[in-house]
Design a protein around this nucleic acid. Sequence first.
DNA 1: ACCCTCACCTGCACGC
DNA 2: TGCGTGCAGGTGAGGG
Length: 276
Amino acid sequence: MPELPEVEHVVRALRANITGRKIISAQLKLARIAPEVSSAQFNRKLRGARIDGVDRRGKYILIQLDNRKVLLTHLRMTGKFVALTVDQDLPPHAHVIFYLDDERRLVFCDMRQFGRMLVVATSKLQETRQLAELAPEPLSEEFSVDYLRDTLRGSRRPIKHLLLDQTKVLGLGNIYAAEALFFARINPFAIPAKLSKQRVDNLHAAIKKILSEAIEGGSTLRIDLEDSGSSYIGTSERFWRVYEREGEPCVNCGTKIRRVTQAGRSTYYCPKCQRR
DNA sequence: ACCCTCACCTGCACGC
DNA sequence: TGCGTGCAGGTGAGGG
């Protein structure tokens, strides 16, 4: 499910819901979710810790603890957090359960079991392999036109593929990469190194626009954020210009949206608006 | 270094 | 109804 905007919503909801709570115990029910530790070690590292805050780096969720550790979570495709009150049953695919000091349980559910958790020392956070190579935050000053131009300059793989590389451009997934290219009117097969300065400017603006609109809940996104106990945190419903619109008319020119497979993923684009 | 393919899983929509 | 196929918003390993 989640690309950067969805993860940001999960982070905000978690921050509002669990900051200040203490983890009484942590039950890792499916070992592959935290492959670097046993379930006993997982509990040992987390039990007794108070949650000081919740942050995000790219698509990673960082749950800051007061025991000088951070719980890193990646939702991958289908990971979700849900907060349960005492009287509520576990939902399907509940793989990790955090028993909190207010009698609620924070549950990590993941149908496809791709999600991952990792407990790292706060002092080692920067050098953690999963975070160390990530590109700058796309909504920060650091992600500048100059940065993007320098990044694209050396690359000859199709631009859509590069946009999914989190070490080059951070936060986009298959949907927002397609949408950003549509807004910038760039063909997904275009060669990054060959893009004109103007097109790089357009792409830079499009990435910022797509992500910030999705986060702030503009016209493209309707947020369904629940503070109260039971519902899934950070779900959303939205409308896309090209994604999953194969055969439908382009909103700009009416040409049928095309779907192609690129690097093993579906890519949607308007063949008329998005010329190479 | 790059680029591609596949693997990891379950569930759902679709066609026969 | 039932079964096979393809597909799903992410990443990482392994090959050329």
